[in-house]
Structures are given as structure tokens and as C-alpha cells.
């Protein structure tokens, strides 16, 4: 392919997306950046363009804000955990479901059903299910470990509350990984697989040396996209635990939400968002560079 794109392609590939993003997002984004350098909240009674610029104080404050830092580390742990588990589960499932089998269409439809429900609904469902009067304790756990199950109060301890959030996320988003992996795996040419089989390769070798390398780009995409979403998790914590007990399950998105909306401290929230943005950019850039470009 010629290195320079033909003009029409260049326009098609850059104009629409530029128009869209610029028209819709650039100005609000610019406003947000400006807000981060102000000391302003609507309750101060002045317009935001009249508010005094305070430079980096908001950022300095964020660095010293224990609640922010803890929320950050907690959210990171959360993200890494769910993305890893969802990835392996999704990949395994996609691999298992590759061939034809009885009821495949229905099975896949059911598998991706969790994606159809709004996250708030999923959060509500798990909230009800994990209560002390709910089925998790009274039906499932009781069958496994007997009466002790009734004394488990999921939302009372930080660790168990955290686990409920993990479970809700994994339940809802494994299908996302599954979808991408399934589509990617089914595009691996049968010829190559058959050739390897003829040569005596085990299923495992085929998987590891034939399929996986071919779908690597999509794996990276899936991991990055899911990672970004998981990091922004808000609904599950908000509805299931309220950030509690105390603030021990407060995700960084939830803290920013509270700061912006409940405490109307929009400048500070903007500053925190920008700091997170910077961090994420660095991490994702490194991630993509390592897997995408180093390989080339």
C-alpha cells in the first residue's frame, strides 16, 4: 500500500471523526480544564468565568487528599482484578463455544444477556441478592456451608463488600470479553488449524501458537477498552454499598461524583479528573506501545 493515503480516504478517515469530536467535546473539555485551575463552586454565587485562577492548588490538594489516593489505589486493584478475571473467563468461554453444538444460538444469546441490562439495574439486583435476607445467604450459601451462611453480612465488612462489587462487575462484563474473543477466534482460518492438527499438534499447542497470536491485536483492544470502563466504575459502588462501610468501597469515580455534584466542588473534581486522565494516558500509552508497536 502506498504510504500516503489517497485524498478521499484521508478525508473520510479524518474529517467526520474530527468534526464530531470537536463540535461536541472540545469546548466542554476545554471548559473542564479551565475549571481545574480555578477556585470555584456554583455555591460561591459568581460566574465561573469571573472566578479567580488559583493555579495548581487543586492539584496539590488532590495529592495530599488521603480519600482520593485510597480511592485511586482501590480502584486500580478493582480494575486489574476484574479485567484479568473477565479476560480469562471470556477467552475460555469463547474457545469452548467455538464449534457447533446443540442450542448454540440460544446459549450465546443468554451469555451476552448481562450486557443488555443497565448497570444500575444489575447493581440493584445484586444489592437485593446480597442482603442478609437475600438468596445468596439464605439459599445458595446455606446449602454449602449451613447455618453459618446466615451470619455473613456482605456489606458490613470492607473486604466482603468489595467482593460483591467484583462479582457484580464480572457477571455483567465477562460477556463483553466473550463477544470480542469469540468473534476474533472464529476468524482464525480453519485451514491453519487443520494443518496444525494434521501435524500432530495438541489442542493446547494450537491454541497457544496458532490462534492466540492471530487475535492478539483484538485482545489488546479488549483489555484496554474494558480496563478504561472498569476504572470508571460507579454504579455498583453507588447502589450496592454507598461507598461503605465508611468510604472503604468508594471508587475514584464515585468520589469525584460526590465532590462535583454533592459538594459542588467542581473545580476540585475537575482537577482530580485531569490527574486521573494524565495517569491513565501514561499507563495506556505504555501498554499499547509495549504490545502493539514493539511487536512490529
Amino acid at each position: 500500500m502506498p504510504e500516503k493515503p489517497p485524498r478521499e480516504i484521508k478525508y473520510l478517515a479524518t474529517l467526520p471523526v474530527n468534526i464530531l469530536l470537536n463540535a461536541v467535546l472540545i469546548i466542554p473539555f476545554a471548559i473542564m480544564i479551565y475549571l481545574a485551575f480555578l477556585k470555584w463552586s456554583p455555591a460561591m454565587g459568581m460566574n465561573w468565568w469571573e472566578a479567580p485562577i488559583t493555579g495548581l492548588t487543586n492539584f496539590a490538594r488532590a495529592l495530599g487528599d488521603a480519600r482520593f489516593i485510597t480511592a485511586l489505589s482501590r480502584t486500580t486493584i478493582y480494575t486489574v482484578s476484574v479485567v484479568t478475571i473477565e479476560f480469562f473467563l471470556g477467552l475460555a468461554l469463547a474457545y469452548i463455544m467455538l464449534g457447533d453444538f446443540v442450542g448454540k444460538k440460544a446459549a450465546i444469546a443468554i451469555t451476552i444477556y448481562p450486557l443488555m441490562l443497565p448497570p444500575v439495574v444489575v447493581a440493584t439486583i445484586f444489592y437485593l441478592m446480597f442482603q442478609s435476607y437475600g438468596p445468596v445467604n439464605n439459599l445458595f450459601l446455606r446449602a454449602i456451608i449451613g447455618e453459618d451462611a446466615l451470619r455473613i453480612y456482605w456489606f458490613l465488612k470492607p473486604d466482603t463488600a468489595f467482593i460483591t462489587l467484583l462479582i457484580a462487575d464480572i457477571w455483567q462484563w465477562t460477556p463483553f470479553m466473550f463477544l470480542i474473543m469469540y468473534s476474533a477466534l472464529s476468524a482464525v482460518p480453519k485451514r491453519l488449524v487443520e494443518a496444525a492438527e494434521v501435524l500432530g499438534a495438541s489442542s493446547f499447542t494450537i491454541f497457544w501458537k496458532v490462534r492466540l497470536p492471530l487475535i492478539k491485536p483484538l485482545i489488546i483492544v479488549a483489555l484496554v477498552l474494558r480496563g478504561l470502563e472498569a476504572f470508571k466504575m460507579f454504579d455498583y459502588a453507588f447502589i450496592m454499598t454507598g461507598g461503605g462501610p465508611g468510604t472503604t468501597t468508594e471508587t475514584v469515580s464515585m468520589y469525584i461524583y460526590r465532590t462535583a455534584i454533592l459538594y459542588t466542588d467542581i473545580s476540585y473534581a475537575a482537577a482530580m479528573s485531569l490527574m486521573i486522565l494524565a495517569m491513565i494516558i501514561v499507563v495506556v500509552r505504555a501498554f499499547i506501545w509495549y504490545f502493539f508497536e514493539k511487536g512490529r
Binding site: G244, P245, G246, Y263
Partner: peptide, 19 residues
């Protein structure tokens, strides 16, 4: 709302035995 919200999380922390 902010004063009371901060009070709420602290009260809850005590009641949950965390603080």
C-alpha cells in the same frame, strides 16, 4: 449537603467498627 455527608460517612465508619 457536604457537611452532613462527611458527618454521615464518619458516623457510619464508627458504627461499622472501622473507626
Amino acid at each position: 449537603p457536604e457537611y452532613l455527608s462527611k458527618l454521615t460517612t464518619e458516623v457510619n465508619s464508627v458504627m461499622a467498627g472501622i473507626k
